[in-house]
Design a protein around this nucleic acid. Structure first.
Length: 640
DNA sequence: AAGCTCTGCTTTTTT
DNA sequence: AGCAGAGCTT
């Protein structure tokens, strides 16, 4: 073949298949990304206009990787391929056709903001001390029902045991939430997909225009598409052809409405489609695949996966037991240092964790031992409180309708709490433009509070210079934030980072929007400075990545399956796939670690132990080792 | 009456 | 680290 990529037979067949709807079922490490890239290259070489190719992924990181690889294959043509996440693509398209979609001047809000808004909506319906789901749980319910195209009531009846009265109240709160969203001109994540999908199906002029724009739609990680995203694919296809790649055994986003069975119904949904398979693994040694295969075979479900390597054999996976998670962390850090001293790169090592929280002792130890690392997943940079303070100041300056941003900004100041803030905002909302709104605010404030108005005013002065606006805004907030946060010295350098991130943007709002959709973690940002680092990552974020040496930490009862999933069959099964994803990231060495020390999960240890996936892993698949250090100082100081 | 501060509790995964 | 509630201060 002359396409520059080294493909095996089946990969090539898939990449060069004739124009048809295609599903490629590809196991872990079988070259999914390679094949999807090869398909794009093949189409372009064959003469398809690259502008008529749409590449959809689930994370911006994946989209980025795809365009980078495409660029190194075919050069500039790669830059005109539309590539992005579902949310990104939909939002961008709606922004371009803002009038048609009717979303002019809308602000995109993240999960945090959704929770805040839900809290406001909830407040009017719940009396103090009453038992009623928390705002975050309500957001989850609402979001899930929308992502699965299910009515709220249907969801409540099917998955919860609330009584009728509570259900009605939930519905009322949701109505209130929707009204507030409308009033504030907010779009939440689900609105982006929902609104797009709705218009796509209901408005024929929009549908025709969008459908005629692309000939080929390539979809990565198809097993994670939820019904709402499917509605979008369904509306966009024909004449455009779908090229979907996925693996049912790696479906780990059920909580977002994805159903791993959806790859099985592909042929039913699209009768004139073909299903191709990739089965040869190029990533891992056979020992790593053996335990992966074993894990799936233990399941009551038939995944029918039996990965075979093309790489030969290596070392057996290691399963190390510790008597405490502190010692587990210490051992990993020391192991890393030893490997580094004997010539390995830090960046050849990945530490996988089920929960962001569960990795904190390891993270503390990496810091303690001066091991450079990045953390991916968990709390992101732009959700850090002080960063959000600054971003909300910018948002406040942008719109006198952005209630959440204004509340946040105003309550930063002394003697202003949510009650006063709400009063001030409702007055400002009446005004036709920002200038009037600011005058109004100025009128309502006492003499010694007048400087509050200066914040948005300064931002507006530099509106067309994002970096300058952020720098000036940061300076403005400095006195008040340094009082609010203890470790201000540590936090303030994030503002420099923010300024640097904004450099590439001409519009402040576009900058904020981009990073609302796919926030960057502070440690990822600092990688700009240091490339050779250990990666500490949640399993969910690690999908699609690989590393020569992988530590999967805290592989203990209560973690796999996670204790919160116990009792729900589907959820427990998803936990198995999460562990499967984790261990199939490893190329050469897989090290599973666990501790039996006192853990916060011990309270229902019985059930957790019963469901535990590795309770009887055969001896021939792993080398088990005990590392007990009973006399390790009981000194928790380094954690603080 | 509104805002502030302290304390205890919980902590799955993410666009 | 963030949130909710209790009790205290302005």
């Amino acid at each position: 073949m002359n396409n520059g990529l080294r493909l095996n037979k089946n990969q090539q067949i898939a990449a060069e298949y004739k124009d048809q709807h295609i599903l490629v079922l590809a196991g872990a490490g079988t070259g999914k990304t390679l094949t999807i890239i090869a398909r794009a290259e093949y189409l372009i070489r064959k003469g398809v206009d690259p502008r008529r190719i749409l590449l959809l992924t689930f994370t911006r990181r994946a989209a980025r990787e795809m365009t980078d690889r495409l660029y190194s294959g075919i050069g500039d043509a790669a830059n005109v391929v539309t590539a992005g996440t579902f949310h990104h693509f939909c939002l961008l398209t709606m922004r371009r056709m803002a009038d048609k979609f009717g979303i002019k001047d809308f602000t995109v809000i993240d999960r945090d903001d959704q929770n805040s808004l839900m809290r406001l909506a909830r407040a009017g319906y719940v009396t103090k001390g009453e038992k009623f789901p928390k705002a975050s749980q309500l957001v989850n319910i609402f979001s899930y029902s929308r992502n699965t195209n299910m009515g709220v009531l249907e969801y409540l009846n099917k998955y919860t045991e609330f009584d009728d009265e509570t259900c009605n109240k939930i519905l009322a709160v949701f109505t209130e939430y929707k009204q507030r969203k409308q009033l504030n001109r907010y779009l939440d994540f689900d609105d982006i997909l929902h609104h797009f999908g709705k218009k796509l199906h209901e408005d024929s002029s929009i549908r025709n225009r969008l459908r005629s724009r692309y000939d080929h739609i390539l979809v990565d990680e198809t097993q994670d598409t939820n019904p709402l995203q499917w509605v979008i694919l369904d509306g966009m296809k024909d004449p455009a052809k779908l090229f979907c790649v996925g693996d049912d055994a790696q479906s780990i986003y059920a909580f977002r409405g994805a159903d791993f069975r959806n790859v099985h119904s592909f042929k039913k949904r699209i009768p004139d489609s073909v299903v191709l398979k990739l089965e040869d693994n190029y990533r891992s040694t056979q020992e790593i695949l053996n335990i992966s295969n074993w894990l799936l075979k233990e399941s009551p479900l038939k995944y029918n996966k039996n990965l075979k390597t093309q790489r030969g054999t290596g070392t057996k996976p290691l399963l190390v037991d510790f008597d405490s998670d502190l010692y587990e962390a210490k051992w990993i850090a020391e192991d890393l240092i030893e490997r580094h001293e004997t010539g390995s790169l830090w960046s050849d090592h990945m530490i996988l964790t089920r929960t962001a929280w569960g990795s904190r002792s390891v993270e503390a130890m990496l810091i303690e031992k001066n091991i450079p690392y990045i953390f991916i997943g968990g709390i992101s940079f732009l959700q850090a409180a002080h960063v959000k303070d600054l971003l909300c100041l910018v948002r406040a300056a942008a719109s006198n309708h952005d209630e959440l941003a204004w509340i946040r900004y105003l309550t930063l100041w002394p003697r202003i709490g949510d009650v006063t803030a709400s009063r001030l905002i409702s007055a400002m909302k009446e005004m036709g433009n920002m200038k009037e709104a600011l005058d109004q605010l100025s009128n309502k404030l006492k003499k010694d509070q007048q400087k509050i108005v200066n914040g948005p005013k300064t931002i507006l002065k530099y509106w067309n210079e994002p970096t300058k606006a952020l720098r000036v805004g940061g300076e403005f907030l400095k006195p008040i934030l340094s009082q609010k946060y203890d470790k201000w010295d540590l936090r303030k350098k994030d503002f420099d980072l923010l300024v640097r991130l904004a450099e590439r943007y001409r519009s402040l709002m576009r900058f904020i929007e981009t990073y609302t959709l796919d926030p960057i973690t502070s440690t990822v940002a600092s990688r700009l400075e240091n490339q050779d680092v250990v990666t500490l990552i949640t399993v969910h974020s690690a999908k699609g990545t690989e590393s020569p040496v992988c530590y999967v930490i805290r592989v203990e009862p209560g973690m796999y399956p996670h204790i919160r999933s116990l009792g729900a069959e589907d959820e427990e099964e998803e936990e198995r796939r999460i562990l499967y994803v984790a261990i199939t990231r490893a190329k050469n060495e897989l090290i599973l670690t666990r501790s039996e020390g006192p853990s916060s999960y011990s309270y229902s240890y019985g059930d957790a132990a019963e469901a535990y996936f590795l309770s009887d892993v055969p001896d021939k698949l792993v080398e088990e080792r005990w590392q007990y250090e009973m006399y390790l100082e009981k000194d928790d100081d380094f954690l603080t």
